[in-house]
Amino acid sequence: MNTACRVPVAASCSSTPHPAVLWRPGSSRQNMQRPDPADRIDHGARIRLGAAGTKNGFRGRLLGLAGVGALTALAVLTTLVPGPSQVQAHAADRGPATELKLGYFANLTHAPALISDSKGLLEGKLEQDGTGLEPQLFNAGPAAIEALNSGAIDAAYLGPSPALNSYISSKGNSLRIVAGAASGGASLVVKKDIAEPSDLAGTELATPQFGGTQDVALRHYLAENELLDDATVTPSSNGTLTQLFGRGAIDGAWVPEPYASLLVENYEGHRLVDESSLWPEGKFPTTVLVVAKDFLIEHPETVEKLVEANSEAIDWLNSAEQEEKIEAVQEALNAANGSSFAQPVISAALEEVTFAEDPLADTYQTLINHAAQVGIGEPGSADGLVDSRFIASQEH
């Protein structure tokens, strides 16, 4: 992986071509130009033929013959021109992509992306088809969604809330979730003198970004405890909120791993809320793998390679020895972000996260409702959001 431009999580690279991107390796490339979808043919048009009466004479017979000719032409056209479903299938038959632009975060909950990149799992699979890989680093989901919607990236690892919001606001046209990556690993870490939810009244709290998965979780938790108007929530980057917590400028933060463990291990914070305690069986999605809908339609072979690499990285994370896993995650974070975390922090963080391909789609409607209840995103349905065929092919 080309690491020509690295910056800390809280900063951005001045040469970055997209304002939301924190790090983009390699030289700038022109955006791929995707062909316009094929025009749809309406095969429902009907031609009416009236019977020629005695008064119509030869002219009536000519009209009848013309009608028969039109029907014949329409039949030929129907045979030769594909219908809408065939047009979409043809649009999908574009072969592997020239390049895959993939976004992810320097978080432990994105370890499948980090391991896949550092070990060359995805890059190796894409090279078989002549497809290049351009990784891009983000701080939080809304920024990644902005890049995905603008075409700056083709796929991303991110939290489910921004993906759900994008899907609903675009009426299902923006993206699809093709796999899960991680569940668990998010907590509200606070100062020691905050012992119960009522102590949050009058506090200053933080999340990685407004509208992100942890931001929605914190605001919904405050609303459920009738504290939404009594606490201040300020979105800040993970790196910045860590510094703010260390200086005592904020009282707590709802953050993913390894930042939750970092606040506990290095800054004397404690977990007031482990988000797993709020979900049935303790399962909730922290990171999912999404692909732009147009890219998925046009390059399913490339998406399949992406899901394959994700599966292999998850398998490695779940089978490697603890010490080997900690070392690999530290190296991957350092390569992606220019810095890493101490062994005790990574070790504690790994205990909080489960890596799995299951996107936990049963939780999505609840997440949509939570976001709508606190005024982030629109109400709607998650039906059709998950494209499970790629995961199914891995299982076979």
Results as ranks from 00 to 15, higher is better:
residue 303 V to E: 03
residue 386 V to E: 06
residue 107 N to F: 11
residue 344 P to N: 11
residue 7 V to N: 03
residue 134 E to L: 14
residue 144 A to G: 13
residue 124 G to E: 00
residue 370 H to E: 11
residue 349 A to S: 15
residue 355 F to K: 06
residue 281 E to S: 13
residue 323 E to S: 15
residue 58 F to D: 11
residue 352 E to F: 00
residue 313 A to L: 08
residue 63 L to R: 12
residue 150 S to E: 11
residue 138 F to M: 13
residue 168 I to N: 02
residue 311 S to D: 06
residue 332 A to Q: 03
residue 113 A to I: 12
residue 124 G to R: 06
residue 110 H to N: 14
residue 286 T to L: 00
residue 110 H to Q: 07
residue 16 T to A: 05
residue 192 K to T: 14
residue 326 I to K: 02
residue 94 R to S: 09
residue 297 I to M: 10
residue 123 E to H: 06
residue 227 L to S: 03
residue 38 A to Y: 11
residue 283 K to T: 11
residue 187 S to M: 04
residue 147 A to M: 09
residue 133 L to S: 02
residue 51 A to F: 05
residue 40 R to T: 12
residue 43 H to F: 14
residue 247 R to S: 15
residue 387 D to I: 10
residue 105 F to N: 11
residue 173 N to Y: 02
residue 18 H to Y: 08
residue 208 P to N: 13
residue 75 A to I: 07
residue 21 V to C: 08
residue 99 E to L: 11
residue 130 G to C: 04
residue 123 E to Y: 00
residue 312 E to T: 12
residue 228 L to T: 06
residue 260 A to H: 09
residue 249 A to S: 12
residue 46 R to F: 04
residue 240 T to N: 09
residue 293 K to P: 05
residue 370 H to C: 07
residue 246 G to N: 09
residue 312 E to A: 15
residue 19 P to R: 13
residue 19 P to T: 13
residue 17 P to V: 03
residue 93 D to Q: 13
residue 101 K to F: 00
residue 85 S to A: 12
residue 194 I to T: 12
residue 159 G to D: 08
